[in-house]
């Protein structure tokens, strides 16, 4: 399956990513390979086969107990950028 420019730009926009022309042609061909693989999978006759949604279907639930798993310092240390108690990111406004 071909990934045309319109679809590519749509996916890039959804992911909030920008690509150079070189990156773009590389990624397009990778995406096409993935889709070809999926198409092959889709050729299998699955008539009457229940979809496998969960690999571990036991439905285990967790008791509602609070535990401190990592500290604020540890968590912020791993952030690309932080300021006092906050994660710091480029200014974003209302594009949710």
């Amino acid at each position: 399956m071909r990934i045309d420019d319109v679809l590519f730009e749509h996916l890039a926009k959804l992911s909030k990513l920008k690509f150079s022309a070189k990156e773009k042609s590389k990624i397009k061909s990778e995406l096409e390979q993935m889709l070809d693989f999926i198409r092959q999978v889709q050729e299998v006759d699955t008539e009457g086969v229940e979809p496998l949604i969960h690999l571990n279907p036991d439905g285990k639930l967790r008791e509602d107990v609070v535990k401190v798993l990592s500290t604020k310092e540890e968590v912020l240390k791993n952030a690309p950028d932080a300021n006092e108690d906050y994660f710091q990111v480029p200014k974003v406004l209302n594009s949710k």
Binding site: V66, K67, D85
Partner: peptide, 27 residues
């Protein structure tokens, strides 16, 4: 009004200091 978050044991609490209730699962 649970004590912990939906998928992790971090505290579910309004008004805590910023990022006090954040573990590597929340991030």
């Amino acid at each position: 009004l649970t004590k912990s978050k939906l998928f992790v044991a971090d505290e579910n609490q309004f008004g805590a200091s910023a990022n006090a209730n954040v573990s590597f699962i929340t991030t």
